[in-house]
Design a protein around this nucleic acid. Structure first.
Lengths: 228, 228
DNA sequence: GTCTATATCATGATAGAC
DNA sequence: GTCTATCATGATATAGAC
């Protein structure tokens, strides 16, 4: 039973840390809040994870591994089904962002709590978090980027990368900043409407992302001497 | 001279605080870092601003007042020029986000430092910051929302509000998370390319935002009993 | 393996001299 | 208005008992 208790303690710490990091950010959350919320001793975090930074990384790794595996698998399937043809842009976007958004409805993978935490993390002030995230995402981003390059051969690669940025931003804010955004737009919503809109967020967002991805290319003055 | 010195001290604190809050976030920045960087005494922040929270609010107020005044003025002019006709959606979007992005090139209004700070702030963990921001933005958001309602009479208002959210998110990440996003996409860029892409960000982003705003409406199953 | 107790340092804020 | 000195608290991390 000692082993099971050990696992429970670890998981309990991770669950509470996930929730508190989401609510107050990394710097705004103390070890005392975490261990207090998990009903474990103050020293337990250092014992199980070594440091607060390592705890934060473990909070992400526990969820991101399965998310990114699913993303890889989805793209594998799409490419297999397409044969020699490139995969459709809408299918690529749906796979990447759909896999992310489906976490929100799956408590066993973190649910809305982790989704919001993740959405906030690209703008986390702490550098070690951003670099860690970038490392965790590298392989997946490479594959999806290249899939989009093949799917949109007439669009310059730099443009695609930028639009991928914009899509990430729109999605992250949509899930991370819902309370801030509601405050901004003073949008009064009944509980029923809130549930509806959560379910409708995915199609709404997908329409927006695809509209942006396929928008007409911007016109800027070409650099001097560039060929017409 | 005592009065001038006073003003200088205040402004110096605000400048340093703006830069540090941008780099390390609110919780991650200490009063000692701020006063040390501004070469003023530790007690100066409390004397001039009362508290760390009030300092943070003043950092924003100093820049946001002129930004939001410009936004109001721009919309005034657009509506005057349009007469009885609704203003074009592209002009509304260009006014709202263009006014924001032009700050990046104007050091006297905070430049890139403030732009990045602001972009990060909608997802700031500290609740008092988000509620303060929402209050500062309320009047402007109301006017632009209503302008979009008039400009897009065939699009449901809820859809417009959501798409405004998405546009804010894409823009905020584009300016706040540039380093994180570059890490994510492993985009190697020369210094020259970085300057170019900064100038080209505005047209790139505008194309994306307008593409998303005008995307086909999403299809979801209508609620039971809703009229066709 | 887990907890108590504590070390060491940083934090925001203030009182009071000048 | 600005300074020094200090308070009370909270931070992360660790040493050592059991």
């Amino acid at each position: 039973m000692a082993e099971l208790r050990h696992v429970d303690t670890r998981e309990r710490i991770l669950d509470v840390a996930e929730r508190l990091f989401m609510a107050h950010g990394y710097e705004g959350t103390s070890m005392r809040q975490i261990t207090g919320g998990a009903n474990v001793n103050l020293a337990a975090v250092n014992y199980h994870f070594g440091s607060k930074e390592s705890l934060m990384q473990e909070v992400f790794r526990r969820r991101l591994d399965s998310l990114n595996e699913e993303r890889m698998r989805l793209l594998d399937e799409l490419e297999a089904a397409a044969g020699d043809q490139p995969v459709k842009p809408s299918a690529i976007v749906e796979a990447f962002f759909g896999a992310l958004l489906r976490i929100g409805g799956d408590e066993s993978r973190g649910g809305l709590t982790f989704l919001r935490l993740l959405g906030r993390t690209l703008t986390e002030p702490s550098l070690f978090i951003r670099t860690f995230l970038a490392h965790e995402y590298k392989a997946v981003m490479d594959r999806y980027k290249n899939a989009l390059f093949r799917a949109l051969p007439d669009v310059p690669k730099a443009e695609i990368v930028w639009r991928f940025h914009f899509m990430l931003g729109a999605t992250s804010y949509a899930i991370a900043g819902t309370d801030a955004l509601r405050l901004l737009t003073e949008w009064d919503m009944s509980a029923e409407e809130a549930v509806d809109s959560l379910e409708q967020l995915v199609p709404r967002l997908m329409s927006f992302l695809l509209g942006g991805l396929r928008a007409p290319l911007p016109q800027f003055s070409p650099p001097p001497g560039a060929p017409g």
